[in-house]
Computed example of a mutant assay.
Amino acid sequence: MFRRAFWFTTGAAAGVWATNKVHQKLRKLQPDSLAAQAADKAVETGHRLRQFALDVRSGMADREEQLHEALGLSTPDGARELPAPRRAVLEGHHRTTRTTGPNGLTGPTGKEDH
């Protein structure tokens, strides 16, 4: 007698549990729920992309500082100042232009580039 009652109760509990699981899955597959899940995923992806961009910028700044130190472009107080020849080139004092000749591109001297 007790054996039958035990198995009946176990079967009933398993049926209730399975019914609840099926209903949960069905609620997750409703259009409103799918839209909310997609929105949550989009927000989460946006946060991850933003964090990635911040990490990239931080790494770029660190690497730029390393390169400035390696090239001797940093002053002792941490400010960056370019040496005079490099500054002149960057300011445009020694600009060279390319022109188009009868046979294609030519250099600043008028001779064709090879």
Rank of each mutant, 00 (worst) to 15 (best):
T97C: 13
P85I: 01
A5G: 04
R27D: 14
A14D: 03
N20F: 10
M60L: 15
K28S: 12
N103H: 11
D77K: 11
K21W: 01
H23M: 04
E69H: 02
R63N: 09
G110K: 08
T109Y: 08
F8Y: 03
G110D: 07
T19W: 12
E81V: 14
V56G: 00
A5I: 12
E112Y: 09
T75E: 12
F8S: 05
L34K: 10
K21G: 03
Q66K: 12
T96L: 10
K25E: 09
Q51E: 10
K41F: 02
K28C: 07
P31C: 01
A14N: 03
V43R: 12
A5Y: 05
N103T: 05
T109C: 01
A42Y: 08
T19E: 10
R86D: 03
L73W: 03
K25C: 01
A35P: 00
G15Y: 08
A12E: 00
R57H: 02
L29K: 03
E65C: 01
T100Y: 06
R86L: 12
A39M: 02
G110E: 10
D32K: 03
H94K: 08
A42F: 08
Q51H: 06
L67W: 05
P31V: 02
H93S: 12
D40R: 12
E91R: 10
R4V: 15
H47I: 11
S33V: 04
S74R: 10
G107A: 15
W7T: 14
P85G: 03
Q37K: 13
A61F: 09
A39F: 05
N103F: 12
H68K: 06
N20A: 13
A36D: 02
W7V: 15
G15D: 04
L90R: 00
H93I: 05
R80I: 11
E44G: 11
F6V: 11
T19Y: 15
P102S: 13
L34Y: 00
T45N: 09
L49K: 09
G107I: 05
P108Q: 05
A88N: 08
